[in-house]
Write a protein that binds this DNA or RNA. Structure first.
Lengths: 197, 197
DNA sequence: GTCTATACCCGGATAGAC
DNA sequence: GTCTATCCGGGTATAGAC
């Protein structure tokens, strides 16, 4: 019985270490020697597992986005009402930051730079897809009467997108606030505002 | 009559070009040859004006932060009421993105990495100062009754900080929405929420 | 203030032994 | 799966002429 390719192999271990370093120092600032050192091997040995540093980050991003967008699709296809779908999408983001912090950080910090290479063209596609999802959710929110009609939903989309994902810069799993706490506080601010009704 | 050191000298021109490149591609991804090319000179000639690539970004960041924090201090010292001070601080951020986009982008994208060098230790100090300013503004907002008392103002601070500055990623001066428009929409969401009162 | 020429180092990657 | 050894390119920076 053959192992699943993503089991706890050495290769996966190394990839996990690389993810942490990329997230911490940035893709360009992380050398293959950094990765090898952290994995306790020599830099040349990395090339037994991967054919380049780029292909490491590529694999991390593709996997991550596939999973994430599958979950967005589930929310879109669910029978939740429009407001609940928006809440679910926000909660999903904070949960993802909690569970896939390195990948989120890499995406936030390095996607713009990586997008300039052909190989990473799919990052742009995913951005468009994300915008599409959120604009759908927000339009349905307005149409259903759940959201105010006087807002520029394009701007609302940008604010939500930016605010939920940049939290990866300060959120720490196991810290004082759980991802549920953070999501609740954020939704509270977003939906009700910080002043008295 | 001696010229002001920051007048339209060649040195200033070069620094301006460097700022744009750092903002666009990141500090590490910008080579001194890129800067020299864009300035129409050879890389060696840059060292007539600056003693290293690091000192270029250093000069940009120090100047920028000095100006910015002077303006925050003016707001703090003003006789505006607490809510108006918060609004003024938010408006200042969007105005700064409009007028000093490259510096804001460099700070957003590269400060974390640069902070790890002794030379850039002041970046951490400025972060602490910024937190102090915002926590003061928000506390006064709560105490005066302008803001809801049930919020975690530490989280509110982080959300405001992240959302206003991250807008540098998509805001374009001269575009469809002016920085005034963006500030108004943002304050509207922040203060009132996106649902019906 | 800019050029020519070049030193020097570091990063990514390869070949082949073990 | 890892090591030894090494190549090559590109990046920062310097020295001195013009």
């Amino acid at each position: 019985m053959p192992e699943a390719p993503t089991a706890g192999t050495r290769r996966e271990e190394v990839l996990h270490i690389a993810a942490q370093l990329f997230a911490e120092k940035g893709f360009k600032n992380t050398t293959v020697r950094d990765i090898a050192d952290a994995a306790g091997i020599l830099s040349g040995s990395l090339y037994h597992h991967f054919d380049s540093k780029e292909s490491m980050v590529d694999e991390l991003l593709v996997r991550f986005q596939t999973e994430l967008f599958d979950r967005y699709d589930e929310i879109l296809a669910s029978d939740l009402d429009p407001r609940a779908k928006i809440e679910a999408a926000v909660r999903l983001s904070f949960e993802t930051i909690d569970q896939r912090g390195p990948e989120v950080a890499i995406f936030q910090n390095d996607a713009a730079y990586l997008s300039s290479f052909d190989r990473f063209g799919y990052l742009e596609d995913r951005n468009r897809q994300s915008r599409q999802i959120w604009m759908t959710l927000l339009s349905q929110g307005v149409d259903s009467g759940a959201l105010r009609k006087d807002l520029d939903i394009e701007l609302v989309y940008r604010f939500i997108r930016d605010t939920v994902w940049v939290a990866v810069r300060w959120y720490r799993p196991g810290g004082k606030s759980s991802h549920h706490d953070v999501a609740n506080q954020y939704l509270n601010i977003l939906l009700e505002g910080i002043t008295h009704g």
